[in-house]
Computed example of a mutant assay.
Amino acid sequence: MDGDGTTGGGILGGGVDSTDTGPDPATMALLRLSMLPGLGPRTLTALLERFDTAEQVLSAGESDLAMVHGVGAKLIHTIRTASHHVDVETLVTWCHENEVTIVRQGQAGFPRSLEQMVDTPPILFVRGGMVPQDTLAISIVGTRHGSVYGLKQAERFGYALAKAGVTVISGMARGIDAAAHQGALHAAGRTIAVLGSGLGQIYPPEHKTLADSIASSGAVISEYGPDAKPRAGMFPQRNRLIAAMGVATLVIEAPDRSGALITARLACEMNRDVLALPGPVTSRTSRGCNQLIRDGARLVQTVDDVLEELGPMFEPVESGDGLTIRSGSELRLNELERDVLNAIDQTSTPIDQVIAKTQLPAYRVIATISVLEMRSLIRRLSGQYVTRI
């Protein structure tokens, strides 16, 4: 996806936000390198892998730079004259004045899901904030020209997922994206918008108010410098971040040629689940979804279908209400089911011990254990022992 993008990957900690007295030299160098024109994410990843730090890349000789795949004479000249291309001081000042945090890979506020990518952006510009519970997220995507049906469904799923404690990820585009964000906002839940432009160039411009609302209930993020205007090639590049940030990607409505299908393909390549909402066979805007289902995507009709598909987490996630979630299916549990589940260890647990811990009648515990077993959250080891999966 290299081209005129301004992102890439690296392994650096630290960062700068609006409360810092000033960025450290390593951050300044990384900003300067990341914002260079013509340096795409894969090439930047290769440079940082070869030279370890942005400072070493910027000070490298022409012959050393030329040894990196994708680095030609034009890009070498750009790197060697980097200070002429990027005004880092002005960029940092803009972020300070607009309450935008500059987050580096490896820093606490950097999404862990993005660190698994082969072309991880080393820098993210964040308005709002990301929290650990955002690990439990679903990406919702679809056409900019959504039908009444599609827009209603996007808002319905955004609302229901946010109510269940799932963070809704989307791209803040017209149509399906905006409806999904609005649904999450109406539920007073968390939502994150990933832009295909800089934070100082909100696109589409009529979504500036929406961006304000999202930033107050989650985050608006971009890998591009604040003054980066949207260009056609930036949106497919942005889509890889949307795909990576969700445990699964839900396509609400998409024609057979759609950026949403690019996101679905990227999610599949990242071993994320792809879900799709079916539509009428006569609807042009549902052809892409129906095709995804034909090709193996999970057909979903309700939010329970989505939560069931989440399955076990890579690691436990703290939900917004302080609960530890190990599987998406746990979000569907009522209070009684959750109490019984929490009384079962990940090692062999006697059912009598579960009854003692919960102080519930034996018949109710045994019935609840059967429900948890059907939802693949626990496993019976024998007639008297159970364990969490």
Rank of each mutant, 00 (worst) to 15 (best):
V251K: 04
I252L: 03
I252T: 11
I252V: 15
E253G: 03
A254S: 15
A254Y: 01
P255T: 06
P255A: 11
P255S: 12
D256S: 15
D256Y: 06
R257W: 01
R257F: 07
R257K: 15
R257I: 09
R257L: 11
S258W: 01
G259H: 08
G259P: 04
G259Y: 01
G259C: 07
G259K: 02
A260V: 10
A260K: 08
L261A: 09
L261D: 09
L261H: 07
L261G: 02
L261Q: 08
L261Y: 01
I262C: 07
T263R: 00
T263W: 02
A264E: 02
R265G: 04
R265E: 14
L266E: 13
L266V: 13
C268M: 14
C268F: 13
E269V: 00
E269D: 15
E269N: 15
M270S: 02
M270E: 14
M270L: 15
N271I: 00
N271V: 00
N271H: 15
N271R: 15
R272P: 05
R272E: 06
D273L: 12
D273N: 13
D273A: 14
D273C: 07
D273Y: 01
V274L: 05
V274Q: 07
V274R: 04
V274G: 02
V274K: 06
L275M: 07
L275A: 10
L275E: 06
A276P: 05
A276I: 07
A276Y: 07
L277T: 11
L277M: 14
L277P: 06
L277K: 05
L277N: 05
P278L: 00
P278A: 11
G279L: 02
G279D: 04
G279M: 00
G279A: 08
G279W: 03
G279N: 04
P280Y: 03
P280I: 10
